[in-house]
Amino acid sequence: MEIIILSKSLKQLNVDLVNTSSQVFEIEFARSLSQYAKVSIISLQANIKEVNKDISLYPIENEKKMKYCIKKAIEKNGLFIDRERIMLLFGYDYFILNNLSWVCKQKEAYLISYTFDTHKAALEHKNRIRRFLIDTYFQLGIKKLNSIGGIILFNEEAYKSLHLSIPYLISKVGINNSEISPVVYKRNENKCFNIVYAGSLERYNGIDEMISAIKLLPLKNIFLNIYGDGTLKNEVIRKSADDPRIHYRGIIPRGELDIVIENADLLLNLRDTKHLVSKFAFPSKLIQYLSSGIPVLSTSVLKDSTFNNVAFVIDELSSEKISDMIFYIVENPDEQQKRSMLAKDYIRKNFLWDNVIKDVYDFLRKISQSS
């Protein structure tokens, strides 16, 4: 089988140089899938061809003439030689779906969407007219989904909310065994307690609540370091100025963030589980966190009773709940160490790419052989 993935964001294939969890996911997903098939990525952001391990990255010359440029890239680089051909995109952008549908028809390939986000999250801060126009555009994309070969999602609820009738697979984010840290967490009692949040600065990620939680704590030896970007960036900067324990650190590459995580005492993975985003998204950042061996405080984003034993889980996104749990964690270093060790075993049993990607490959193979 031969698979071509269209990316809207990848500039290169070095996972240490990217700065979003979705870009990390795209690279690791492609690399894992390359165990079973020939995988190439055509990117709207790449400038030069790159080969990294078992996957290749190709730029396209003109995004406005996307379908012709993709077809040219396929023919120029000798792609889609295998009889079983899959074209995969992320999401349901109407323009991209139309262009890729044309390419797939020309090249006798099946088009698959991997959808792990909803456009509605980006509408929350738009005015009414822009919300209507953007929503109308993406509704066309959702309607177009029912004409493609299949879709991969993270949650059953997402499939229902999109009102689809095409084949689907419920999957999850994975990690390589080599990325699970061998280091056993141990609190250094002589230093400050270092809390880290890294991710999108959006309300559904509990940004307001985590900042307010720190302000509620009477402890002076704790620090909250916030990394990322989003609509709440300026608000985070403003609120952090009121408390010397809170610091906004901006955006840094994945490789630098790994070092930050290694030196943390607690990682925050917060999400409003009632928000529409939770129907689509999978907490990929959480998998990275649990693999690091650093203790994690999280809302109940995984419906798994074991998860409550490997992370410090709160059942409600509120400043009081976060504050109370942080205080408990600070007072119980032995519990931190125990849960960090259990977390790594939990990841090995449930989230290794070797296991996750086999189901994805089988799903794609079934669709490619459906004619």
Rank of each mutant, 00 (worst) to 15 (best):
N205M: 11
I211M: 07
I214Q: 03
R187S: 11
R238Q: 13
A198F: 09
L201T: 01
Y185M: 10
R203V: 12
M210W: 07
K220F: 00
V236N: 12
I214N: 05
L217T: 06
M210D: 03
D229F: 08
C192M: 03
I207G: 09
Y197C: 10
V236C: 14
N190Y: 11
N188A: 07
L201K: 06
V236M: 09
R245N: 04
K186Q: 13
V183S: 03
D242T: 10
Y227F: 11
A213K: 03
D208I: 14
N221I: 01
I207H: 00
G206N: 07
I195K: 01
I222A: 04
V184M: 03
R203M: 12
R245D: 09
L224K: 10
G206M: 10
K239R: 14
N188I: 10
N234Q: 12
P218Q: 00
K215I: 07
D243G: 04
D208K: 13
N225F: 05
E235G: 14
S200C: 03
L224I: 11
V196W: 02
V236I: 15
N190Q: 13
K215R: 11
F223T: 15
A198Q: 10
E235K: 12
D208P: 00
S200L: 08
E202Y: 06
Y197P: 11
C192H: 10
G230T: 06
L219P: 03
L219N: 13
I207D: 09
E189H: 14
K239C: 03
E235T: 15
I207R: 04
V236H: 08
N221R: 09
V196G: 07
Y227I: 03
N205K: 12
N225K: 08
N221G: 01
I214S: 01
I237R: 12
E202A: 09
A198P: 13
A213H: 05
Y197F: 15
N190C: 06
P244D: 11
L219E: 15
Y204F: 14
I237H: 01
G230M: 09
I246P: 10
D229P: 00
L201G: 06
R203Y: 13
K233P: 00
I222H: 06
L224C: 10
K186N: 09
C192G: 14
D229E: 10
L219W: 04
S240Y: 07
C192I: 05
N225G: 01
S240N: 06
L219C: 09
G199M: 02
E235P: 00
I226M: 05
I222Y: 06
K233S: 02
K239W: 04
E189G: 13
M210V: 03
L216T: 03
L201Q: 00
K233H: 05
K186H: 14
E235Q: 14
G228L: 05
K191Y: 06
L216M: 13
P244G: 08
M210Q: 12
S212R: 10
D242R: 01
Y197N: 03
K186T: 14
F223D: 06
D243V: 04
K239F: 11
G230K: 02
D243S: 07
L201E: 01
I195R: 02
S212Y: 05
K191P: 01
